[in-house]
Computed example of a mutant assay.
Amino acid sequence: MSKRKWMVGAGIHNKRHKPVAIIGGSRLSPEEQSITDTWSAIEYIRTIFPSKERAGRFPPIIFKQQLYALVKNRTDVDREVNTLAESFRIKVFHLGRGDDEVMILITEDFTSFVKKYHGVSNNSTDSNSKYIASPSKDTVISRFLSQVVSTESDISISESVLMKKYGFKDKDLTALVNYGLITLRDAGTWWFSVPAAGQFMKIFLKGKQAALRMIRMTRFKELHLTELKRRKVPPSMKLGILYHAYDLAGSDSIKCIESTSGTLLRIIND
């Protein structure tokens, strides 16, 4: 393909497409028709998380802004995410970049990933005992998952609760930090965290920038979804174009527009 054709994109040519409607949902995939609420949106994003990355490296991670792209009312998303967290169907984790920036995991996915990542047996003994003289790695992690994760719905927890309510000692907290399960929020408070989250965010941010570049380099900084899907995905986009497209749409980095020839992705305020 010539440089000019690559820059312009198939179906766009020399004049800008006139959108016929700005849509509320993203309409990036036909499967979106089955989404009726925040939970079904979470399950859908989980299905498009690449299986290669799920093979022990990372759990299927969902970002709240991806849900905004799928569910029309953002207030409903916020409320339903809180309800799902309080019922322990999901676990919400702070990203450390902004107060509203969080990642979401289905609770079963989180616990399964932690056990697999750290090689913890499902038959670890004494996981329900609060006070153990010399806890093993398996025991500390199993206690944390069975006692804390299953009963604490907030995104952070105080040191006093961990020690007084659950019987963890200083050395246990140090171990949990080393295992990537908690990280310091401020004096006396810990964020819940996901092992290998830092590695995942590096991959995610590189892929996000690659997706933005693909759209930004077109003549009018817009590109049809079908054309975007046809293009060779850069090596840095390990999570797939759809995964990043929902993030970009939900975070208002791109606008999804229904044109006469399909869904058009347009850079916003660039």
Rank of each mutant, 00 (worst) to 15 (best):
S261C: 13
K115N: 09
T260Y: 04
M163Q: 14
S40Q: 11
V161T: 13
Y246F: 00
S236F: 04
T38M: 02
N14R: 15
L239R: 00
A41M: 04
N82K: 11
T38I: 07
C256M: 11
F49N: 02
F200Y: 03
H13G: 13
E222L: 15
A249I: 05
I241C: 01
N73S: 15
R27I: 05
I132T: 06
K165E: 12
S156F: 06
I157K: 01
G98P: 05
E43N: 09
P30I: 15
L228F: 12
Y44F: 10
S51F: 12
L145K: 02
L105G: 00
R213V: 09
V102L: 11
V120C: 11
T189S: 08
R46S: 06
S26Q: 06
I48L: 03
L223K: 07
A175D: 05
Q199E: 07
A210V: 07
A133N: 11
S124Q: 07
R216G: 15
R185I: 07
M214F: 03
T151L: 09
S150V: 06
H244Q: 02
K238T: 10
S2W: 05
I22C: 13
V148Y: 08
R230Y: 09
K229P: 09
I45A: 01
A245E: 00
F63M: 10
I90F: 00
E86P: 07
S146T: 05
V161I: 13
E227Q: 14
G167Y: 08
G240Y: 01
T36P: 02
H118V: 08
P50C: 06
I132M: 12
E80I: 00
F192N: 00
S2G: 12
K232V: 07
K52D: 12
V148H: 04
N178C: 11
I45N: 00
L212M: 14
S193P: 05
K64M: 03
D99L: 06
S253Y: 13
F49I: 05
I257C: 08
N269H: 09
S150T: 12
S142K: 00
R231T: 03
I61E: 02
P234Q: 02
R185S: 08
D37S: 05
